[in-house]
Amino acid sequence: MSDETHHERELGGQLLASVSRSFYLTLKALPKELREPISLAYLLARTADTIADTALVSTTVRLDCLQSYRSLVRGSGDVQSLAATLISQFCTQQSDDAERRLMEKFADGIAWLRTMRPTPLAAIQNVLEHIIDGQMLDIRRFPADGRLRSLATPAELDEYTWLVAGCVGEFWTQLCATELPGALDPAIATAQMQDWGARMGKGLQLINILRDIGEDTRDGRCYLPCQPGEIQTEWSLWLQTCTEHLECGLRYVQHVNHTKLRYATALPLLLGIQTVAKMRTTPWDRILQGVKISRLDVASILAQAAIACRSPAALERLYRKLAQA
């Protein structure tokens, strides 16, 4: 008999796979105690992301919808009213069929959230509030008026990467500690694991920012705190910061005791460090076109990780190898 709930079967299968792409590999590899709350949190975060990114809908409407969504996550507000708005104003603007279905299933996602036990529910509510705050901040900072804008300071970029991804590392650690006792190395304080997890999340978000630098600047967004003529130099500096964050991610994964959880946690880190290695050796004109690793690379990392994740030392050897690829 399947250990999946009704909502997990309905929303956590094809729909989740279609919107999570490579991260679906991590979600399906998770131990069953963590799979449902983390899958739900990811699906709800992707819903918020789609609301924020639907540029054909006015800024005011998107911000209002995100604010209503934030309230619903905490249990107040009219689910059907927001669901109707998403169907009438957002569904028709989606070029991707998976994003359209995500909008259509909004009310079902909230219903799934309502089934969570108190401890994972509180963790999901907390991380979603941070993510939605980051998305609202993003919309306000980058109005779609044709002008190129940059973040003002390194602190603003650090804040943004924490809000949309670093907080996920803390959420992940919290759930591991409460839902799968013994999964994390008891010799390491939970606060230290949360810090390493947050830095891993920030590093993974920086990868997205750095590899999408060309597309984002063409759309009027520069997440790097610099003037237009300084982008390439600043990009190199933040690539180094990204690498330092991922080093913390390596320490995090090495102190996950549960083998299956270590594998699931290591996958985004290993895919990330290979992407960093590729960006480091790619000419700038190609960087501006976008960088990603191939499906063959992904398949190779999956196969190697299945063996390497059996021990922290083997995992580190694979990480160092991919960092030099």
Rank of each mutant, 00 (worst) to 15 (best):
M1K: 03
R9F: 10
L11A: 01
G12Y: 02
G12A: 04
A17S: 07
Y24P: 08
Y24S: 14
T26M: 02
A29T: 10
A29E: 03
L34S: 08
A48S: 15
D49F: 10
D49G: 11
D49Q: 08
D53I: 00
D53G: 06
A55M: 10
C65A: 15
L72D: 03
D78Y: 00
V79A: 03
Q80I: 02
A83Y: 02
A83H: 11
A84L: 09
S88G: 10
S88L: 12
Q89K: 03
T92F: 01
D97W: 08
A98D: 01
M103W: 02
I110R: 00
W112N: 04
T115N: 01
T115F: 10
P118I: 07
P118E: 05
L121F: 08
A123C: 09
N126I: 01
L128A: 01
E129W: 03
L137E: 04
R140H: 12
P143W: 05
D145W: 00
G146A: 01
S150V: 03
Y160S: 07
V164A: 11
E170W: 12
F171R: 03
G182F: 03
P186I: 00
A189I: 04
D195F: 10
G197V: 08
R199G: 05
R199F: 07
K202E: 08
G203I: 01
G203Y: 04
Q205A: 09
I207V: 07
I207Q: 12
I207L: 14
N208Q: 11
I213A: 15
D219I: 05
G220S: 06
C222R: 14
Q227W: 00
P228L: 04
Q232V: 07
E234C: 15
W238V: 13
H245V: 00
L246V: 04
R251Y: 15
R251D: 09
V253N: 05
N257Q: 15
H258L: 11
H258P: 00
L261S: 07
L261N: 08
A266P: 06
Q274K: 15
V276S: 13
I287K: 11
G290T: 09
V291G: 04
R295Q: 12
V298C: 13
A299I: 04
I301S: 01
I301D: 12
Q304S: 12
A305C: 15
A306W: 11
E316S: 13
E316F: 08
A323G: 15
Q324T: 12
Q324S: 14
Q324H: 10
A325I: 08
